[in-house]
Amino acid sequence: MKNASKKNCYAVFGNPISHSKSPEIHNFFFKKYGFHENYVKICASKENFINEILSFFQKGGKGANITLPFKEKVFLLCNSITKRARIAGSINTIKKYDKNFLLGDNTDGVGFLSDLLFQNLIKKNFNVLILGAGGAARGILHPLLEFECNIYITNRTFSKAQYLSKKFKKFGNIFSIPINQLKKNNYHIVINATSTSVFNVCPLIPSNLISKEVIYYDMFYGKKDTFFMNFCKKNGAKKVFNGIGMLINQAAHSFFLWKKIFPNTKEVFNFLEK
C-alpha cells in the first residue's frame, strides 16, 4: 500500500494487476488536462481487500477503479450507487466526495459499447454470445440489450448463466446456453468475458464455434494476443479484437465522473501505440 498514501491519489485495485494499463491512460489524462495528481495500480489481497481500499480513501484517495476479482464486492463500501451499477450488479469506478461519502458507478458497459461502435463492430439486432457470467459480463449486458442485441450467455457453472438471463430478461432478449450445447448459431459476435485470459488459459469452447465471418472480442488485453484470440485465429477467425479499446473508453467515462471533463480518447490510443 506504499503508493496509496499519496495525497489526491487515484488507483486501480485488482489481483492480478501487473498487466493493467490504467495508470498510463489516466496519468495521460491528468497531464493533458492540467491536473497535478497521480494514478497507481494496487494488487489488493483477496482476503483483506475491503480494509485496503478503505485505507486508501482514508489516506487521501479521491477515486478508484475496481477490476477482477473485486467488482461485485465493493457494494458494501459505497454510500450511493448509480442506476447503471445497480442494474449491472457490478462496480468498476468509485468517486469520493466530502466526509468520506463514496459513490459507486459502472463504466464498463458504456465503455464497451463505445468501443464496438467506434470500430464499427456492432449493429442493432446482432446475435451476441457471451462467455462468462461474472462481473465483467454483468457490466456489459444492459447496454447491449438496450442497443437491441439478442444475448446468449454461457458459463462453466451454468446456474450463473441462468441467473443472469433471468435477472436481465426484463431489458430485452437474453438466453442461457450450457457450454456443451454450444454450436454455430448465427452469432455475429462472440465475447470472452471470463477471467481465463488473465491466467493464460482458453475458455472451454468448441473449435466448430469459430468462423471467419464472426467477430471475436476478448475483454482482456495484453502486450500479446490472448489464448482466446490465438485459439480463434488458429481455427480460422479473421475478425479478432482485444479489450484495449474498451479499457480506454471506460477510463474516459471514469475520468468524466471524477473531473467533469470527457477526454479525447483518440489521443490516448495514439499515445499507447507509441
Rank of each mutant, 00 (worst) to 15 (best):
V190L: 15
A137Y: 00
L144Q: 03
P203N: 00
S195Q: 06
Q181V: 11
F231C: 07
T194Y: 09
V198K: 07
D218P: 10
N200A: 07
N150K: 15
E146C: 15
T226R: 04
F168T: 01
S176L: 07
I189M: 07
A237S: 11
V198N: 07
G139E: 02
N192L: 06
A237V: 08
I177R: 10
K170F: 04
L182M: 08
F175V: 15
K223C: 00
E213M: 12
L182F: 08
Y187I: 14
K167G: 08
I215P: 04
G243D: 12
I244E: 03
L141H: 02
V214G: 00
N230H: 01
G222K: 11
K224V: 11
T196A: 12
S159V: 14
I210K: 12
F199M: 07
A133C: 09
F228K: 05
S159Q: 07
C202N: 14
R138A: 04
K239F: 09
D225F: 00
V240S: 02
C202I: 14
K167V: 11
S207R: 10
S165I: 04
K167S: 03
A133V: 10
F228R: 06
G139D: 02
Q181D: 15
F158I: 13
A136V: 05
Q162K: 14
F220T: 14
A161K: 00
N192E: 03
V201P: 02
F231Y: 14
H142W: 03
T154A: 03
V240D: 03
I215A: 05
P143V: 00
G139I: 04
D225H: 02
T194V: 13
N242M: 09
A193F: 00
K234E: 09
I244M: 14
D218K: 01
G222T: 11
F171Y: 15
D218E: 11
N180M: 09
Y163E: 12
I244P: 10
I215M: 05
Y152Q: 08
L209Q: 13
I191Q: 11
T154V: 09
K184A: 15
Y152G: 10
P203R: 01
T226K: 02
G135C: 06
L144I: 09
N185L: 11
N200P: 05
